[in-house]
Amino acid sequence: MTTPLVTATGLSKHFEVGGGGFFGLRKAATLKAVDEVSFTINAGETLGLVGESGCGKSTLGRLLLRLIEPTSGTITFDGNDITRIGRMEMRGYRRSMQIIFQDPYGALNPRMSVEDIIAEPLVIHGERPGAETRRKVTEMLGKVGLPARALDRFPHEFSGGQRQRIGIARALVLHPRLIVCDEAVSALDVSVQAQIVNLLQDLQREMGLTYLFIAHDLSVVRHISDRVAVMYLGKVVEVADKKTIYAAPLHPYTQALIAAVPAQHPAQRSRGRRQRIAGDIPSALNPPSGCRFHTRCPHVMPVCRERAPELREAAAGHQVACHLTDT
């Protein structure tokens, strides 16, 4: 039985960029960072969100938490529309939705002790710092695998992996239901990355968490996710359960993305054997007409230049936005 925890419907975020200049003569352009995206995250699952730089995956993660305001579209959390509710009401929901950032160095205030960092969300939500917050912080430290003596220490005394554990403890101290992991393991060395991935999975089971796991590393996403969504230039181009999307991707971009992952053994070297997509990711300021992938797509047809394909159900639980499958 799956119940949606978060649903985005036609969600967009457009930024006005480049305006102003001499006497305001330069014209502003619209950057469609996220464009009419719809998807659902079910309670207790991990939805992986992959795509290359500039595809809008981080913006989408922040939109869901309303850390940035959407231009249009709606977000529902636990059945309630949270798109236009006021600050105070939103604050109530914020307890239930938290984010873990990529850079464990930049995300922690260097002047605050570990106790203050982890207790901060509690204090913001009205608790008085004291024995009770200290107990909660100590409990969280234990959960993320840090000793209680870490309480009085400062971020610079910890390694990257340990700092990420502190970031996780801070995100979890309010016992949220949804965690957006924005490239949460990308900056870590692989031997440490595996520890943090395991920790995130343990905590999910223990605390019944729902994850939106944003990353560019396709093998980490496959490992941790139940379902995976692929983004390209502000659009979700394919969503399916992880086994299907990695074994039988339908969108040519998903296929190219998976084919570009380096081999895991020299015997499977991809040069000359796997199809490469040529060219660079076009600018999001001036995206191609029709299907945004058509400039790089090996299967491009005339219709792809004219009309943007819609995200449609190609098989049960497998959605794809491509004219090839639109028959």
Binding site: S219, R222, V261
Partner: peptide, 12 residues
């Protein structure tokens, strides 16, 4: 410690 692109590992 690197996850696989083809196999399921319960834990890294």
């Amino acid at each position: 410690c690197v996850p696989s692109l083809t196999e399921d590992k319960p834990r890294l």
